[in-house]
Amino acid sequence: MKTYSTTAIALIATIAPIAAQDLVLSSGEISTSIQVDSIMIPLGAEVVLLKGASLRASERITIDGYLRGTSIASSAPDLDQVHPRDVETDAPAIELIAGESIQIGPTGRVVGGVGASLDQWDSRSFDKLIGGQGGDIFLSAPVVWIDGAVEGGQGGDGARGGSGGSGGSIWLEGEGLKTGLGTANAGLIGGPGGQGGLGRQFGDGRPRDRPRTLTRRGRSWWRCTPARTSVA
């Protein structure tokens, strides 16, 4: 089994398709989709999937380390460059597809990215905007074995008078789901929702807008349908 740094993989993938092989990913960022025979993230490695990237294997995906999605920066954008409602706030999803199986080992952890928090965006142009949604996680294989933890991303806090973003959900597609007790936190955990933004104050100190809070937790979905056996 060959070992590659994630930086090298991203570079190769942007030039030409990667030849059929087994890959071990070291710590780093993945900026493009990877398609190989099998993929492993070993214990101690921390891999980040950037927007638009995915992991696809014709055989197996094994995760004993830490895989997380991209979190969205919470810094306010330049209003001279972008309209407030066109600002990207939702964390992208994590997508893993395997032709045979996906295994999250006892030390493995897959966590969705965090949505943008808008509570520091003080311009009135941002008022009532909803916080960014936490990243969803999509797993597809005939057999999905979870002995570690799979957690949806946390939703971001809302802007002034705005609701918090929803937590990320977990979507599984396949014919068999197995869960173990390898860790105390083993299983599927929907992401926590963000907090609602505070209302503005005017002369006498009363809130102009009633703060709304949405702390909806992401959901875990299991669909008993045939998994995608093709990773093309």
Score class of each variant (00 low, 15 high):
residue 4 Y to P: 02
residue 5 S to C: 11
residue 5 S to E: 10
residue 5 S to Y: 06
residue 8 A to F: 06
residue 9 I to D: 02
residue 9 I to G: 01
residue 10 A to S: 15
residue 15 I to D: 08
residue 17 P to R: 04
residue 17 P to F: 02
residue 18 I to P: 05
residue 19 A to R: 13
residue 20 A to P: 11
residue 21 Q to S: 13
residue 24 V to N: 09
residue 26 S to N: 14
residue 31 S to E: 13
residue 32 T to Y: 06
residue 33 S to A: 14
residue 39 I to N: 02
residue 40 M to H: 09
residue 41 I to V: 13
residue 44 G to H: 05
residue 45 A to H: 01
residue 47 V to S: 01
residue 48 V to T: 13
residue 48 V to I: 14
residue 52 G to Q: 04
residue 53 A to F: 03
residue 54 S to Q: 11
residue 54 S to V: 02
residue 54 S to C: 08
residue 67 L to C: 04
residue 68 R to G: 02
residue 71 S to T: 11
residue 71 S to F: 00
residue 76 A to S: 15
residue 78 D to I: 12
residue 82 V to A: 10
residue 83 H to G: 15
residue 84 P to N: 09
residue 95 E to Q: 14
residue 96 L to A: 06
residue 96 L to I: 08
residue 96 L to Q: 05
residue 97 I to G: 00
residue 98 A to V: 04
residue 101 S to F: 05
residue 102 I to P: 00
residue 102 I to A: 03
residue 103 Q to G: 09
residue 109 R to M: 10
residue 110 V to K: 00
residue 111 V to L: 08
residue 113 G to L: 00
residue 114 V to W: 03
residue 114 V to I: 14
residue 116 A to T: 08
residue 117 S to V: 06
residue 117 S to K: 03
residue 118 L to E: 00
residue 119 D to I: 05
residue 121 W to H: 01
residue 121 W to D: 05
residue 123 S to C: 10
residue 124 R to P: 13
residue 128 K to F: 09
residue 129 L to F: 03
residue 132 G to Y: 05
residue 132 G to P: 04
residue 136 D to V: 05
residue 138 F to E: 09
residue 139 L to E: 00
residue 140 S to T: 09
residue 141 A to R: 01
residue 146 I to S: 02
residue 147 D to Q: 08
residue 148 G to W: 02
residue 149 A to L: 06
residue 151 E to P: 06
residue 151 E to I: 15
residue 152 G to H: 06
residue 156 G to D: 05
residue 160 R to G: 07
residue 162 G to M: 08
residue 162 G to P: 07
residue 164 G to F: 07
residue 164 G to E: 07
residue 164 G to N: 07
residue 168 G to K: 00
residue 168 G to E: 05
residue 169 S to R: 00
residue 171 W to R: 12
residue 172 L to N: 02
residue 176 G to L: 14
residue 176 G to F: 15
residue 176 G to I: 13
residue 178 K to Q: 14
residue 178 K to P: 01
residue 178 K to C: 12
residue 179 T to G: 11
residue 180 G to R: 08
residue 182 G to F: 03
residue 183 T to D: 15
residue 184 A to M: 10
residue 189 I to P: 01
residue 191 G to T: 07
residue 194 G to F: 05
residue 195 Q to I: 14
residue 195 Q to R: 14
residue 196 G to P: 05
residue 200 R to S: 11
residue 202 F to K: 14
residue 205 G to T: 03
residue 208 R to C: 10
residue 213 T to W: 09
residue 214 L to D: 15
residue 214 L to S: 12
residue 214 L to T: 09
residue 215 T to M: 10
residue 217 R to E: 11
residue 217 R to Y: 06
residue 218 G to M: 03
residue 222 W to G: 10
residue 223 R to G: 10
residue 224 C to W: 13
residue 225 T to F: 10
residue 225 T to L: 14
residue 226 P to G: 03
residue 231 V to K: 06
